[in-house]
Design a protein around this nucleic acid. Structure first.
Lengths: 339, 339
DNA sequence: TTGAAAGCGCTAACAG
DNA sequence: CTGTTAGCGCTTTCAA
């Protein structure tokens, strides 16, 4: 790889002059500029961004840390994020913690060592070590998405979950369902808690007693949905008449189980879930879902991060954005009410 | 951010000693090491990877350039790639050219400037400028996937496409179809050409004349599948009895169109396509597809890249891996043959 | 076992 | 308009 010095030698000028030509906003004699440009071409010179970053203390790279790269939800967030920040000249590094708190800390450290200018985190853990937490928020521009992290006082963006869950379950109730099960992800994340709360809200509202056996905790993946399906569908005497799946992947796994057992939705069992509107359209039957909007989450988070970057201040900007969601009725539930 | 110097001052040793403690493989007196470690903790010191990279000329970061971040196919390649390289201590930067040759060149330059140690490219363009091409292959470890790039003499990995396409279409023929249309992505990419060739192979084999109006070119996205569907389904007199969709996204769009027009698969029209086995399982009806295996593509490419990195040589390793594919029959085609 | 010092390639004063 | 030079933070001889 060629360096500034090589170019300078070739063009018979100083490194400073070459640097000036490249940066563009310095007065350079036309003839000199031409010679330098020529040398750059002749030598296949590509500026060394590493050296530049060391000097300027800016990498123009941001990071996003998601809990699961296999989940389209987070991929879409990352895409939207990338689209927003790239227009301001930033690049995006995507990493996945695979829902592992250890790995998450490791990756945050990697981001720190790579001296990224800022990062967006969809936390796998509920909290970080106090040192890292306070260090993070004081050193870097950070925005949290989807979940909040105890002790990390920064801006955050997520989608409304509790009310949406309540509406979903209320819809089931209105159709006469009373044995309503729920399959959800790991305990104790912001979203899990909110979705469970919404579920309980709706039950309470309908005076349906909450039943421990109807609530299954697992991960936000297909495996959990599948296992949940197997469990609930095999309940001889009191098989639930409806199931609420807490995310898109769980839904897929659950439908797989339903199919395998030879049952049908909604004839044998009703299903409601969180999901992607497009995906849900191509499933059979069309699902009744809380329409999630990862692109908006990414956009908001991106803009918030850019704002922090510009102010390049460590202002305690603890804005907490909660985006509204809506539910979309499909044909995945059956009414038990006889008119 | 603290620096080595801060730590050295705090521990009352030289920067060299701190560096030695961190690197680990140097003899340091136990007492000194303890003091240094203490200082590191006390100061929240995180090594500056940028400075390290400048000094060592290694970034331990690889890049992957895909044509479309919205396509699960490439996402899965990236994931597998990441899994492979991370076990060797590398990080992965993912970027998308959005099928834009200009943008692709821009991103390659970004990768070059960031001094990534190597990169995997799924080219959007058919060729690069000769200079960049030769420069690339001589400067960096590069592996191509999915498509080949004229003039870039490096290793490549892709999935068999031509024979697979032929089998797919032959299956339709065996069921009595003769009006078989095809919807495919941009002209002139390796995979497009191979899939079209396979389609033609099968027609020729069955002595069915190739018909220009039955072949639609577009992009590898839902839009194209949708438009293709609208076009073919509205052919009054000679609507094709079967359609071959060249990738997963086109299939989704096509099915959307079928649905909108009020027709059904396979009763009104048969469909075969390239796709993800899992996805295809949850579509209705179960699709007849060429089972693609992006994870393997990612793994092979990753291992090939690591091999080059280790030899850290610019050996002209032009291995060209073509992974085998297979077709999986579903219920998305209807036999026109009366037994 | 430790310290001093020379760069890695670049930018930005400062001086001419 | 152009050149000289001092670092950015780190690793690594070379001496001590």
């Amino acid at each position: 790889m060629k360096t500034l010095r090589d170019v300078a030698l070739h063009a018979r000028v100083s490194v400073a002059t070459v640097s000036r030509v490249i940066s563009g906003d310095y007065p350079v004699k036309e003839e000199t500029r031409r010679r330098v440009l020529e040398a750059i071409n002749a030598l296949d010179y590509h500026p060394n961004g590493v050296a530049r970053s060391l000097k300027s203390a800016k990498t123009y790279t941001l990071g996003v840390l998601v809990p699961d790269m296999a989940n389209p939800y987070f991929i879409q967030i990352a895409r939207a994020l990338e689209a927003v920040v790239e227009s301001s000249g930033y690049h995006l590094l995507v990493a996945s913690s695979d829902e592992d708190a250890e790995k998450e800390i490791g990756l945050i450290k990697v981001f720190l060592e790579k001296r990224l200018d800022g990062m967006v985190i969809a936390p796998a853990a509920v909290s970080l070590s106090p040192e890292l937490a306070s260090f993070l928020s004081s050193t870097l521009s950070v925005v949290l998405i989807d979940r909040v992290l105890d002790g990390v006082e920064v801006g955050s963006v997520r989608e409304e979950s509790r009310q949406a869950s309540k509406l979903l379950v209320r819809h089931l109730v209105s159709q006469g369902h009373r044995e309503i099960a729920m399959i959800t992800g790991r305990k104790l994340t912001t979203t899990s808690l909110e979705r469970e709360a919404g579920y309980r809200d709706a039950l309470q509202e309908a005076h349906i007693p909450f039943c421990e056996t109807y609530l299954m905790w697992g991960d936000y993946d297909q495996e959990t949905g599948y296992l949940g399906g197997k469990r609930f569908l095999s309940m001889k005497d009191r098989r639930p008449s409806a199931v609420f799946c807490a995310n898109n992947l769980i839904t897929l796994g659950f439908l797989h189980a339903v199919d395998e057992v030879g049952l049908r939705v909604p004839d044998d069992i009703s299903v409601v879930s969180f999901g992607d509107p497009f995906e849900a359209t191509f499933m059979t039957p069309k699902m009744t879902i809380v329409v999630q909007n990862p692109a908006d989450v990414g956009r908001f988070a991106g803009r918030m991060l850019l704002r922090k970057l510009e102010r390049n201040s460590t202002v305690h900007d603890t804005e907490e954005v909660v985006l509204p969601t809506e539910i979309r009725l499909g044909s995945s539930t059956r009414s038990l009410v006889v008119n």
